[in-house]
Design a binder for these strands. Structure first.
Lengths: 252, 252
DNA sequence: GGCCGGCCATGACACAGATCAAGGCAGCGT
DNA sequence: ACGCTGCCTTGATCTGTGTCATGGCCGGCC
């Protein structure tokens, strides 16, 4: 375990070997849902020049660690990442799952140190965007500044949805809501909204939703028994989307 | 109730009569914890000129309503405000309490419409800061831009703390954590951290913490019986701060 | 190829907090 | 002054989910 941690960390990302992993925002098929969304032509070039890419993270590698100096925010290019914070007694609370085209790490801005950690759920390619450069750039590009404000605002509203979910909804509603969220985000990337593989374990799902693994298991079984889903381990097939939405019962 | 709503709303704030309520950031004793924190001299003047003040909100007045066009963020000058979102089935989820010197409304940036509503818990004076002006200003004042990013980032980390609290902590831990948070914020304003009046009802507390009123009541009674607090309705006296921190058990 | 460790499923039981019910109290409008 | 209404407290009971225990499965590693 400590061996794994050793070859992970911020040091990887943003290190010198970026020539090996040259991919440009131009040719990235995520550009329309990712940071470049607000930019074009020369402005995109300027963003491009500050973005750092590095060799892919392996499953379980840390992208950044709670308490580490905040330097960059990160865009997921492929794979999937979970963000989590460690509570005083050493347990962890998963605060979000991040899929390709999504940005994470913004919780570090306020204090200058990351307020959470992030770990790859599977082999993942990540773009690191040094925040001080981004900040300087955004002072000159109103569209970019606005986009950053919007990204952070969206993170806030999504956290508030999770707060509501945890505070008001029963186990089945929480699970159904998460599945619908993943389905919707898949659709945004032109992937199937009805058939997909969950990159995270039941443990992570339970942790994120404030439930135990056993409860997650039971809910999956029940949804399967009722013909809403076909579940084969991490492989999910939504058989009756309307029923899933009914099960989510306003969770969004 | 509808009468109350009618004389509330965004229209009040930002309306023409601001000459009546002239107070400047210069003389506001909150300036060191509020937006002006990052500014001085001429820059402060420029911020000053875009801030709008209006007549105080009365208890239960709405500051803004979920779905209304997003135009401003708001700073609490006096009183207290709760933010909440309404779930599909009409129940509400309180997402935060805001005290003097604190900023709310940033969840509206991402979609251009407020993602939550805000209501005065008692008579409250509020400064409205039109966001498009603020955005333009912050492109010229790097310190302000950074401060805005930090404010939003702080909102994110605080939401994540609440998520963790809801997901992992028992009733007593949640209540103790909220009390400690309020105490800490009082201290920041040079008020007592051990004796204060809660501006919100038990109902709001329960709603915020994902618990029922009855449970809140029982926890207060228990903490009182154990000599941790003296509770007289909304008046709280922290008798044993160490015990309260133990009760919070890592919540903060 | 077989063993081992992590993950997942399912059942029996326990418990924290929800729900239901009843009553007290304070503030407000008439 | 009165009664009304909303808020708070406390008790009795119920229930969804946690906890504990067991066993199966899959994938990695020797």
């Amino acid at each position: 375990m400590s061996a794994r941690m050793a070859n992970s960390s911020d040091a990887n990302i943003g290190s010198a070997c970026s020539h090996e992993y040259r991919v440009s925002c131009d040719t990235c098929r995520l550009s329309q849902i990712c940071l470049p969304l607000a930019l074009n032509g020369e402005d995109l070039d300027r963003l491009e020049r500050i973005i750092q890419r590095s060799k892919p993270l392996q499953k379980n590698d840390l992208l950044y660690r709670e308490g580490a100096p905040f330097e960059s925010i990160y865009a997921v290019r492929s794979g999937a990442v979970k963000a989590f914070r460690t509570t005083g007694d050493g347990r962890e609370q998963v605060t979000g799952f991040y899929f390709p085209g999504e940005i994470l790490g913004m919780d570090g801005i306020s204090s200058g140190a990351h307020a959470s950690s992030a770990r790859a759920l599977e082999t993942s390619a990540i773009c690191a965007i040094p925040f001080d450069s981004l900040e300087r750039l955004s002072a000159h590009l109103p569209g970019l500044q606005r986009h950053l404000f919007q990204l952070m605002s969206r993170e806030i509203t999504e956290d508030q949805l999770l707060i509501t979910l945890l505070s008001k909804n029963a186990a089945e509603e929480r699970v159904a809501t998460l599945l619908l969220s993943i389905a919707r985000r898949n659709a945004r990337r032109h992937l199937s909204a009805t058939q997909f593989r969950l990159p995270m374990s039941r443990i992570d799902i339970g942790n994120y939703l404030g439930l135990t693994v056993e409860t997650i298991s039971r809910v999956f079984s029940r949804l399967q028994k009722n013909g809403v889903l076909a579940v084969d381990n991490k492989e999910i097939h939504v058989l009756d989307n309307a029923a899933l939405e009914r099960a989510a019962n306003l969770g969004t």
